[in-house]
Design a binder for these strands. Sequence first.
DNA 1: TTGGCCCGTTCACTTAAGTTAAGAAAGAAT
DNA 2: ATTCTTTCTTAACTTAAGTGAACGGGCCAA
Lengths: 193, 193
Amino acid sequence: MQDILFNFISRYVSLTNDEKNAIRSLDLFHSVKKGTILLKEGQKSQNSYFVLKGCIRVYYIINGEEKTTAFYTELDALTPHCVVSKAPSQYYISCIEDTILAVSNADMEAEINCNFPKFESLCRMLSEELLAKQRIDFDEFKTSSPEQRYLNLVQKRPDLIQRVPQHQLASYLGIKPQSLSRLRARILEKSKA
Amino acid sequence: MQDILFNFISRYVSLTNDEKNAIRSLDLFHSVKKGTILLKEGQKSQNSYFVLKGCIRVYYIINGEEKTTAFYTELDALTPHCVVSKAPSQYYISCIEDTILAVSNADMEAEINCNFPKFESLCRMLSEELLAKQRIDFDEFKTSSPEQRYLNLVQKRPDLIQRVPQHQLASYLGIKPQSLSRLRARILEKSKA
DNA sequence: TTGGCCCGTTCACTTAAGTTAAGAAAGAAT
DNA sequence: ATTCTTTCTTAACTTAAGTGAACGGGCCAA
C-alpha cells in the first residue's frame, strides 16, 4: 500500500528516504468495511482521504432522497468541503466497497506543510490539477445531454458502471433511476438497428 | 488595483513589504477591452488570470455553437486547464466587459513559488478552497432542475443576470436560450398567482 | 432613414425526463 | 428455504426541455 502511495507522489515530487520515513511514521492507512459512513451531514470533520483500493461515494439527502454526486476510486483524493470551510458538512461520505484509505487530518497536514515544503508543493500541484480537471468535467456535464453523459461515462470510467448500483449512477448523471433505465434501453435499441 | 490584490491575498497570508515589492515589480496588471479573446481553442497558453474588475467568460464551440460554461468576475481566479495539462486548450476565454486583470504565467509562478514559500502556500490554500467550492457548485448543478438552477443563480450571483446576455446565461445553466426565456416567463406567472 | 444583424421572446411541435405505480429479479437475513 | 428488502425494469401519464420558425426591438453602419 505504501508503494502505491509513493508511486503516486513520485508523479509530482521526488521524496528522500527521510521524507518517506516521515510519511511512514504517520499511520495513514486504514481499512474500511463496505457500508461504513466516513462523514455525515452536519459534522465538522478534519479528515482528507486518498483511496488506495475500493470506492467511496459522496451523497446528499434532499427531501428524504439520496442524491449521489461523486465517486472516488483508486488514486483519487478527496478533501471534503467542511475541512476547508470549517463549516458543518452538507453531505455524507460512505464506502460502497471494502476500501483501503490513506487518511490525513488538517492539523497533521498543516504541520507537514510547515516542515516539508516539498509536501506543500505536492498539495498545491495536486489541487491545481484536480481543480482544472474538475472544471472540464463540469463543463462536459453542462454541455451534454443525459444520454451523452452516460455514453461519456462508459468511455471514461467503465469500471463505475460495473461496481456502482444504477440508482446511484443515475443521480451522478443528474437524472432519476427510471430515466437511466429507459435511456439505456434506448441506446440498446439504437445499436441493434 | 494593487490594494485590491493585496487585500485579497491578506485573507490567506500576510505579506512583508519586501514580498509586496516583489509582487509589485512583476508588472501583473493589464487592462483589456470588451471583446478581447484571451485564449483560443487549440492554443497552449501559460497564463493565469485574476479578475480585479470586469468579467471574463469561458466558452466552447461545439458543432458550431457557442456553449458558455463559466464567468469570472471581481476577485475570481482562473488557471486554464491547458496551463496545467500543457495540452492545447479545448475552450475560449474572452472579456465580456472592459476588464482589469492580474496576469501571471507559469514560469513566473514557478520562480516565485521557489523563492517565496509563502506564495506557494497561498496558491495551495486558494486551490484547495476553489476545488471544494467548485465541487459544491457542481453538486448543486447535478441535484437541481434548470428552474432551480436559475433561481439559485438569482440568489447567488444576481449581478450576472444583469451583466450577461441571456443566451450566454442559458448555456451556463445547461439549457437553450428559448428554454431560459420560457422558464423565466413561468416563474413570473407563478409569482403573480 | 433604411437595411441588416443580433438578441430575446413566443409558438407549435417533438422528444425526453419526471412521476406514480406495479411487478420481476437479485441479495441479505433469519 | 422462506421472507424481506433493495434494486432494476416497464408502463402510462405529466411536465418540461429541445427544435425550427417567425416576429419585434434595439443597434450599428451604410
